[in-house]
Design a protein around this nucleic acid. Structure first.
Lengths: 245, 245
DNA sequence: AGGCATTTGTCCGTATGTATT
DNA sequence: TAATACATACGGACAAATGCC
């Protein structure tokens, strides 16, 4: 593992687990951290900047580096979520790996894409896409319904069995692609009759919809999806840090 | 302005506005960019890494740097949102600066905080907080209702007039504090009777709730708020980029 | 399969700038 | 003013991944 990753992991643990650094504590200055970790200033800076981006600490020029005044609840959320943010890129099955996850496939077909789908998947309307509609159950309870489109050229050989377990595992392990990033858009709405029926809700009940475009590490969008979550099971966290002073 | 910010701004414009670099295009290699911009490798790398974080480009070691296969719609969203993500830290009035924004103050009082509020604002239950409930109107239409708590010690002298315009402007311009970051949590639910009445909705209609803790550049949380958005006016975008290979 | 050139990644050292106390 | 601490920028050495021959 890289040095700056290791240092940032260690410092993060000191804040979130070891209780070595508490909210509002000042961290050792960069020079001391250099000595402590036998690293250069750039390496320490890089390690600290990761924690700044994660929302754990802040730095003030001429002053020092400090832990933010975070509540225990926030610390807990962050401990759970820091990996989770990354796990958004590992698919539903991995995200809830500890729980009993099953899928009910409602539709699995190959169709020509609508203009919107073609555009977002960066293909033409003459290409074909898989259309997949799945209900995801956690511990036997339906909680998300996913409508997914993927270019067949990019993800060849997709079978029903993959849908019932994890498409992401197929992409990673069989096709040897890596997922690089994902652009999400979150909205709320009332459940349609179709959604309501499959999530065991009343029509019009509040649901959260995550529109996602996911990219492979070759820059191509390979998945365009709409995940509709039961409102009371949906919880999305994010940290926004000011970059430009 | 810093060199790496300028370079990254220029490259971003080449992608989003000048149409100089298109989706899937390869950018010049770092060495060439060094020559082109008269900058060192580290500076170019830093500029490019900003665009990677923003979700515009990706890099492959031993191969090069490329624009992602983004749709025009995505490019539009990003052009609008790249500033917006940062503007989440400037408050509602700034965010919708082009539109006619008004506020209706429903409650403005000073109360002792509940345990949850005290914890998230990192104060004791013996401190006091402002409690503010405001309806925000865009072009005369109520679209968000905000329930806000702020420690009176941190934000002294807050008056009704500030609530009717912008609290953030007061904090920045009068108290000379800067907002450093904000932790948000997004959920969906059905509107309560109170929410429904004030947003001119039917009770139970879907709404999006943003729970936010905002931090000053001294590390202290100064605002704990719940913003309830009319579902059809709520739209949140985010980019998730895989950091660890 | 092996070797080579290309390209980005990591890490170090150093110098200078800027904000705070 | 001086000391402190983080920020920017440069250059160089070596490592690791990729594509091509």
């Amino acid at each position: 593992m890289n040095k700056y990753i290791e240092i940032s992991n260690e410092l993060r643990n000191h804040i979130l687990k070891d209780n070595l650094y508490h909210p509002n504590d000042q961290l050792p200055c960069e020079k001391d951290l250099c000595i402590q970790y036998g690293a250069s200033k750039m390496t320490i800076k890089k390690a600290l900047d990761i924690l700044v981006d994660e929302g754990l600490i802040y730095k003030k020029r001429g002053h020092g580096t400090f832990v933010k005044g975070l509540s225990q609840q926030q610390l807990d959320i962050m401990e759970e979520n820091l990996c989770n943010t990354q796990q958004a890129l590992t698919g539903f099955s991995r995200q809830y790996a500890k729980e009993d996850v099953t899928s009910t496939v409602l539709e699995f077909s190959v169709i020509p894409p609508t203009p919107k789908i073609a555009s977002n998947l960066h293909i033409t309307e003459e290409d074909f896409v898989y259309k997949i509609i799945r209900v995801r159950n956690r511990n036997g309870v339906p909680c998300v319904i996913e409508e997914t489109y993927m270019p067949i050229d990019l993800i060849p050989g997709l079978k029903m069995a993959h849908l019932e377990s994890s498409i992401y595992a197929y992409i990673r392990q069989t096709l040897h692609y890596e997922i690089q990033s994902s652009h999400v858009r979150i909205r709320a709405k009332g459940a349609s009759e179709f959604i309501a029926r499959n999530l065991q809700l009343e029509p019009g009940s509040p649901v959260a919809v995550v529109e996602q475009i996911a990219f492979l590490d070759n820059g191509m969008p390979f998945e365009y999806s709409f995940s509709t979550h039961k409102a009371d099971l949906f919880d999305f966290s994010a940290v926004i840090v000011k970059k430009i002073p």
